[in-house]
Protein backbone atom coordinates (compact mmCIF):
# COMPACT_ATOMS: atom_id res chain seq x y z
CA UNK A 1 0.00 0.00 0.00
CA UNK A 2 2.71 2.43 0.98
CA UNK A 3 4.49 1.65 -2.27
CA UNK A 4 1.35 2.55 -4.23
CA UNK A 5 0.97 5.84 -2.33
CA UNK A 6 4.58 6.63 -3.06
CA UNK A 7 3.93 5.78 -6.68
CA UNK A 8 1.08 8.29 -6.85
CA UNK A 9 3.23 11.03 -5.39
CA UNK A 10 6.06 10.19 -7.75
CA UNK A 11 3.60 10.42 -10.66
CA UNK A 12 2.48 13.84 -9.42
CA UNK A 13 6.08 14.96 -9.07
CA UNK A 14 6.85 13.68 -12.56
CA UNK A 15 3.93 15.63 -14.10
CA UNK A 16 5.02 18.80 -12.34
CA UNK A 17 8.64 18.16 -13.28
CA UNK A 18 7.79 17.77 -16.94
CA UNK A 19 5.73 20.97 -16.91
CA UNK A 20 8.39 22.93 -15.09
CA UNK A 21 11.44 21.78 -16.92
CA UNK A 22 10.53 19.66 -19.91
CA UNK A 23 9.98 22.52 -22.29
CA UNK A 24 12.32 24.91 -20.58
CA UNK A 25 14.18 25.86 -23.70
CA UNK A 26 11.20 26.25 -25.94
CA UNK A 27 9.99 29.53 -24.42
CA UNK A 28 9.35 31.67 -27.43
CA UNK A 29 9.81 35.38 -27.35
CA UNK A 30 7.24 37.21 -29.37
CA UNK A 31 8.27 39.93 -31.72
CA UNK A 32 6.00 42.81 -32.51
CA UNK A 33 5.66 46.50 -32.78
CA UNK A 34 6.56 48.77 -29.95
CA UNK A 35 5.55 52.13 -31.25
CA UNK A 36 2.27 52.77 -29.59
CA UNK A 37 2.76 54.72 -26.43
CA UNK A 38 2.37 53.30 -22.99
CA UNK A 39 2.70 53.55 -19.33
CA UNK A 40 4.70 51.06 -17.39
CA UNK A 41 8.19 51.74 -16.35
CA UNK A 42 9.78 48.38 -16.36
CA UNK A 43 9.23 44.93 -17.71
CA UNK A 44 12.63 43.59 -16.97
CA UNK A 45 11.57 41.84 -13.84
CA UNK A 46 8.60 40.15 -15.37
CA UNK A 47 10.45 36.92 -15.80
CA UNK A 48 9.55 34.91 -18.83
CA UNK A 49 6.24 36.57 -19.45
CA UNK A 50 5.83 37.33 -23.14
CA UNK A 51 8.10 40.15 -24.10
CA UNK A 52 8.08 42.69 -26.85
CA UNK A 53 10.27 42.99 -29.88
CA UNK A 54 13.12 40.58 -30.26
CA UNK A 55 15.78 41.80 -32.59
CA UNK A 56 15.87 39.92 -35.86
CA UNK A 57 18.82 39.48 -38.12
CA UNK A 58 18.56 41.46 -41.32
CA UNK A 59 22.09 40.64 -42.47
CA UNK A 60 22.14 40.63 -46.24
CA UNK A 61 19.23 43.04 -46.54
CA UNK A 62 19.21 46.37 -48.36
CA UNK A 63 21.19 49.09 -46.60
CA UNK A 64 21.00 52.87 -46.60
CA UNK A 65 24.26 54.78 -46.83
CA UNK A 66 24.67 58.35 -45.60
CA UNK A 67 28.17 59.72 -46.07
CA UNK A 68 30.48 57.12 -44.61
CA UNK A 69 27.78 55.56 -42.48
CA UNK A 70 26.09 52.36 -43.59
CA UNK A 71 22.76 51.66 -41.90
CA UNK A 72 21.40 48.12 -41.83
CA UNK A 73 18.11 47.08 -40.28
CA UNK A 74 18.31 45.39 -36.87
CA UNK A 75 21.87 46.59 -36.42
CA UNK A 76 23.01 48.02 -33.08
CA UNK A 77 21.97 51.68 -33.39
CA UNK A 78 24.50 53.12 -30.97
CA UNK A 79 27.57 53.28 -33.29
CA UNK A 80 25.35 54.49 -36.13
CA UNK A 81 23.83 57.42 -34.25
CA UNK A 82 27.25 58.27 -32.88
CA UNK A 83 28.72 58.37 -36.38
CA UNK A 84 25.78 60.39 -37.74
CA UNK A 85 26.28 63.10 -35.12
CA UNK A 86 23.70 65.45 -33.65
CA UNK A 87 20.24 64.92 -35.17
CA UNK A 88 18.08 67.82 -36.26
CA UNK A 89 15.47 66.57 -33.83
CA UNK A 90 14.92 63.62 -31.54
CA UNK A 91 11.81 62.01 -30.06
CA UNK A 92 11.30 59.14 -27.66
CA UNK A 93 8.13 57.07 -27.62
CA UNK A 94 7.48 54.71 -24.76
CA UNK A 95 6.35 51.26 -25.75
CA UNK A 96 2.79 50.53 -24.72
CA UNK A 97 3.34 48.85 -21.36
CA UNK A 98 6.79 47.45 -22.04
CA UNK A 99 10.23 48.53 -21.09
CA UNK A 100 12.30 50.81 -23.23
CA UNK A 101 11.73 53.52 -25.75
CA UNK A 102 11.39 53.63 -29.48
CA UNK A 103 13.66 56.47 -30.57
CA UNK A 104 13.21 58.63 -33.62
CA UNK A 105 16.21 60.59 -34.90
CA UNK A 106 15.60 63.12 -37.66
CA UNK A 107 18.62 64.00 -39.79
CA UNK A 108 18.88 66.14 -42.86
CA UNK A 109 16.95 64.21 -45.51
CA UNK A 110 16.05 61.12 -43.54
CA UNK A 111 14.66 59.74 -40.28
CA UNK A 112 16.01 56.80 -38.32
CA UNK A 113 13.98 54.83 -35.81
CA UNK A 114 15.12 52.27 -33.28
CA UNK A 115 13.53 49.67 -31.05
CA UNK A 116 14.80 48.42 -27.70
CA UNK A 117 15.78 44.87 -26.88
CA UNK A 118 17.75 43.68 -23.87
CA UNK A 119 18.91 47.17 -22.97
CA UNK A 120 20.19 48.02 -26.45
CA UNK A 121 18.63 49.87 -29.36
CA UNK A 122 18.43 48.39 -32.83
CA UNK A 123 17.50 50.01 -36.13
CA UNK A 124 13.89 49.38 -37.09
CA UNK A 125 13.26 51.92 -39.82
CA UNK A 126 14.89 54.45 -42.11
CA UNK A 127 12.60 56.87 -43.94
CA UNK A 128 13.90 59.08 -46.73
CA UNK A 129 12.24 62.45 -46.26
CA UNK A 130 13.33 64.44 -49.32
CA UNK A 131 15.31 64.13 -52.53
CA UNK A 132 18.56 65.35 -50.99
CA UNK A 133 19.25 61.69 -50.25
CA UNK A 134 18.86 58.55 -52.35
CA UNK A 135 19.25 54.83 -51.99
CA UNK A 136 22.75 53.50 -52.77
CA UNK A 137 21.26 51.99 -55.93
CA UNK A 138 20.23 55.48 -57.02
CA UNK A 139 16.50 55.90 -56.39
CA UNK A 140 15.22 59.09 -54.74
CA UNK A 141 11.83 60.64 -54.02
CA UNK A 142 10.28 61.91 -57.25
CA UNK A 143 11.70 59.10 -59.39
CA UNK A 144 9.43 56.91 -61.46
CA UNK A 145 8.28 53.34 -60.99
CA UNK A 146 10.24 52.44 -64.11
CA UNK A 147 13.43 53.67 -62.47
CA UNK A 148 12.71 51.62 -59.35
CA UNK A 149 12.23 48.53 -61.53
CA UNK A 150 15.38 49.34 -63.49
CA UNK A 151 17.45 49.56 -60.30
CA UNK A 152 15.83 46.79 -58.23
CA UNK A 153 14.12 44.55 -60.77
CA UNK A 154 10.53 43.42 -60.85
CA UNK A 155 10.64 40.80 -58.13
CA UNK A 156 8.59 42.82 -55.66
CA UNK A 157 5.33 42.49 -53.76
CA UNK A 158 2.81 45.03 -54.95
CA UNK A 159 -0.05 46.08 -52.72
CA UNK A 160 -1.90 49.07 -54.08
CA UNK A 161 0.53 51.96 -54.10
CA UNK A 162 3.21 49.99 -52.29
CA UNK A 163 6.14 48.16 -53.88
CA UNK A 164 8.08 46.06 -51.38
CA UNK A 165 11.38 44.35 -52.05
CA UNK A 166 12.11 41.73 -49.41
CA UNK A 167 15.68 40.71 -48.69
CA UNK A 168 17.47 39.34 -45.64
CA UNK A 169 14.41 39.58 -43.38
CA UNK A 170 13.82 43.28 -44.09
CA UNK A 171 11.85 45.22 -46.67
CA UNK A 172 12.71 48.13 -48.89
CA UNK A 173 9.39 49.85 -49.57
CA UNK A 174 8.49 52.39 -52.22
CA UNK A 175 5.15 54.17 -52.08
CA UNK A 176 3.92 55.60 -55.36
CA UNK A 177 1.54 58.39 -56.17
CA UNK A 178 0.62 57.56 -59.72
CA UNK A 179 3.96 56.86 -61.33
CA UNK A 180 6.04 58.87 -58.89
CA UNK A 181 7.87 57.65 -55.78
CA UNK A 182 6.62 59.65 -52.77
CA UNK A 183 8.09 57.58 -49.96
CA UNK A 184 11.08 55.27 -49.48
CA UNK A 185 11.42 53.19 -46.33
CA UNK A 186 13.84 50.55 -45.11
CA UNK A 187 11.82 48.42 -42.70
CA UNK A 188 13.00 45.81 -40.23
CA UNK A 189 11.10 42.56 -39.92
CA UNK A 190 10.10 43.54 -36.36
CA UNK A 191 7.65 46.04 -37.84
CA UNK A 192 5.77 43.33 -39.63
CA UNK A 193 3.66 42.73 -36.53
CA UNK A 194 2.16 46.12 -37.34
CA UNK A 195 3.25 49.56 -36.38
CA UNK A 196 1.63 52.77 -35.56
Amino acid sequence: MKKKGLGHFLALAAVCGVLLAGCGNSEHVISGETQEGGAAESASDQGSAPQEAENTDSAGGYVFVYGDVTISMDEDASPITEALGEPVSYYEAASCAFEGLDKIYTYSGFELQTYPTDGKDFVSLVVLKDDSVATPEGVALGDTKAKVEEKYGTDYQEDGALLAYEKGGMKLCFILDGDQVISIEYRSGVLEGGDA
Binding site: H8, A11, L12, A39, A40, S42, Q46, A49, A97
Partner: peptide, 26 residues
Protein backbone atom coordinates in the same frame (compact mmCIF):
# COMPACT_ATOMS: atom_id res chain seq x y z
CA UNK B 1 -4.55 11.38 -6.54
CA UNK B 2 -6.23 12.95 -9.56
CA UNK B 3 -7.64 15.68 -7.32
CA UNK B 4 -4.23 16.27 -5.71
CA UNK B 5 -2.60 16.55 -9.13
CA UNK B 6 -5.31 18.94 -10.35
CA UNK B 7 -5.11 21.16 -7.26
CA UNK B 8 -1.31 21.16 -7.43
CA UNK B 9 -1.36 22.16 -11.07
CA UNK B 10 -3.89 24.93 -10.44
CA UNK B 11 -1.78 26.30 -7.59
CA UNK B 12 1.34 25.98 -9.69
CA UNK B 13 -0.34 27.84 -12.53
CA UNK B 14 -1.46 30.61 -10.19
CA UNK B 15 2.06 30.87 -8.84
CA UNK B 16 3.77 30.99 -12.22
CA UNK B 17 1.46 33.39 -14.03
CA UNK B 18 2.69 37.00 -14.10
CA UNK B 19 0.86 39.12 -11.53
CA UNK B 20 1.40 42.49 -13.17
CA UNK B 21 1.35 44.22 -9.79
CA UNK B 22 4.59 46.19 -9.73
CA UNK B 23 5.79 45.75 -13.30
CA UNK B 24 3.71 46.11 -16.46
CA UNK B 25 0.67 46.89 -14.36
CA UNK B 26 -1.40 47.15 -17.55
Amino acid sequence: TVLAVAVSLILLQELLMPKYIYDITE
